[in-house]
Design a binder for these strands. Structure first.
Lengths: 367, 367
DNA sequence: GTGAGGGGTGGGAGCGCTCCCAAGGATGCG
DNA sequence: CGCATCCTTGGGAGCGCTCCCACCCCTCAC
């Protein structure tokens, strides 16, 4: 039985076909109008037409109008490749995500950062180009693409510590601003970067718990090869060293930012038998796992044990009890990322080359 | 108190700064090596160097090696703008998402489609460029970007019916393949397209319910200006017309694909007082809402009322009872999208210009 | 030995654009 | 009226690359 809403034209189930990349060279007939043709139609020279179409300095009113009319009539579209060739820049920048697409689309972090980048770029005339770089092959191709003058600069979202991409791009002459902190010997120190104050945020969270009378504050730390994981643990350590004198190593459990690892981390901490009256989880997802474990052990939050998270994920205000957590101004970070790259492209010498954005936190029910 | 993990160099909280777009023209000192320089270093001519670097036909072994060595030593990166200018193509294609970034990152559909596109393109040497086109200003800029020879073709993800983008791109000479169905008078019929067999999938779902002895099969339909919403309702109508003779209009409620609208749709259907023994929801999200409503009314699924969804969202197998639902081969659609665009770029006359991909379904507990 | 054939090479032409400079035309002031 | 000044214009140069064609030289057949 044929479906009536199947359309009438040449439609069928697709069959695989030879996929060789042999596109036509010099696409034959579709010669699009060039600036030369516009100029001819308007009765002026190339130079005048170019000036008329780019701001119109030193162009008479009459010439201006003639060129604009001719361009509209011919449906003229400037060849940006030619423009790039002579200008030496393409007026587009890349937003490169050096992560698996799995995380890309599931982690709201990317959505919010992209939104910030996007909003800062709106109306600037600069084209934003999103690109994934998930493996070495793709990274090489990206470097070729960017170095080939397709991108004037790159915003790189990269949170895993040893990422060869910033260095490779800088070596190819592409200015990079990284979201995250590309420190360490194996990474480029030339790249500029923006990061949330993960350390300070974590410290403030612990200090808040202390101010509420908590003393035995454990932590479920995140992945240590990510700056977010490392720095948040640093923040906890700093606050605890001050509060407890020495560092209570037995109050640390390690997770990987996932909910399951939060569950396991809490179980591990409780199993050690040491008194605990608060748990700081290095991500909200892990905090969800911690809450789950505490509930199942019959412990009350926050009466028996206070819980804090980090991120303010969607959903954090709806869990039981609503999660007190550290918030990063992700949109703002995206905007700063763009501003820094534009400064770098303009060659502003006095600009800040790295920015740490302060975090805040929302107090809800869990602490 | 200063955070010890704050780095040592020039770091501070960012302050807004003038954002005018006045990048440096003709970036001064950083003259990168050109093909001419590579040729000179290798002791051959431009032409020979070019041939050596592009497949090496009619190049002696000696010249080949000399050029490769020179290129490596100088760190030569071909200027892709110059290449694009002479070839008339850029060897990159766009994946344009004509949706809000809200949905972009929350709807797993995009992640899976992107994965399919990505995997099909791997190793082809073609650069994939993701772009958002959320408003008219961005759409115009995208057309300029693509028509300016930055993109050889565009894969457009667009499910809202009157989308001016495919037509605008085709008018500018850019081949487009749409994910979705750009039918209707206001839309381009020139664009090629790929769509899931929404109509057939819905019909099969209803036929399955009929085969299980259900007779009064209601539906909560989706947004009607999206082909997915329209076609899925068509499929339900076709099956019901055959089964019931006439079309039971009072078994239709309308939603917008969201969970809340599924809840309201189910309530509306039940409130009409007509006997119902199954509900086909046009999305899993709406099916979740339907299940919720039925539970609250104390109705048993599937004993009292069977429920089917459409999409196979992550989470559909974990709801109560696990959802029986129609699945679209989204990855495969992404792959087909790429293959079709490459065919179109190659100018293959005999290629299919539209493809409807058959759906399947998974039987779980709800029907 | 001579001519045909083919692999290998060099360099001119040209892609479409922007920049620059010389030259023309209009205008103003002494 | 003459000359300096400014606005406007045209067209050459050149961005870095690929294509094309003429040319060279080596090989092989007759």
């Amino acid at each position: 039985m044929l479906c009536s809403c199947t359309n009438r034209d040449n439609t069928s189930v697709f069959e695989g076909r030879d996929n060789a990349v042999t596109m036509q060279r010099r696409t034959g007939g579709d010669h699009r109008p060039t600036l030369e043709m516009v100029a001819a139609a308007a009765g002026v020279s190339r130079g005048t037409a170019s000036r008329a179409l780019n701001g119109g300095v030193n162009v008479s009113r009459k010439a201006m109008e003639a060129v604009e009319r001719a361009a509209a009539e011919l449906g003229y579209r400037p060849n940006l490749a030619a423009r790039t060739l002579v200008l030496g820049r393409s007026e587009s920048i890349g937003l490169v995500i050096s992560e698996t697409d799995e995380r890309l689309f599931s982690d709201p972090y990317f959505a919010r950062l992209t939104r910030g980048v996007h909003s800062e770029l709106a109306g600037s005339g600069i084209q934003l180009v999103l690109t994934l770089a998930q493996n070495d092959q793709e990274r090489r191709q990206l470097v070729r693409f960017a170095a080939g003058r397709h991108l004037d600069g790159v915003l790189l979202i990269s949170h895993h510590r040893p990422d060869p991409l910033p260095l490779a791009l800088e070596d190819a002459g592409i200015p990079v601003v990284v979201a995250g902190r590309p420190n360490g010997p194996e990474c480029s120190t030339r790249s500029w970067w923006v990061d949330a104050d993960n350390c300070g945020g974590a410290r403030q969270a612990v200090e808040y718990l202390i101010s509420k009378g908590r003393r035995n504050i454990a932590t479920v730390a995140g992945t240590q090869d990510m700056s977010a994981g490392f720095d948040r643990l640093q923040g906890w350590k700093e606050a605890m060293r001050v509060a407890a004198g020495a560092l209570p190593e037995d109050l640390i459990a390690f997770g990987d930012f996932s909910e399951g690892s939060g569950r396991r981390g809490a179980e591990e901490l409780l199993a050690r038998g040491r008194p605990i009256d608060a748990i700081f989880a290095a991500s909200d997802l892990m905090a969800f796992g911690v809450l789950d474990t505490l509930h199942r052990r019959g412990l009350k939050v926050p009466e028996d044990i206070a819980v804090m998270g980090f991120d303010d994920m969607p959903g954090s205000e709806r869990c039981d009890p609503p999660l007190t957590t550290v918030v990063q101004p992700i949109d703002e970070m995206g905007r700063i990322l763009v501003r820094m790259l534009l400064q770098r492209l303009r060659g502003e010498e006095d600009a800040e080359t790295s920015v740490i954005v302060p975090t805040g936190f929302v107090v809800r029910g869990s602490a």
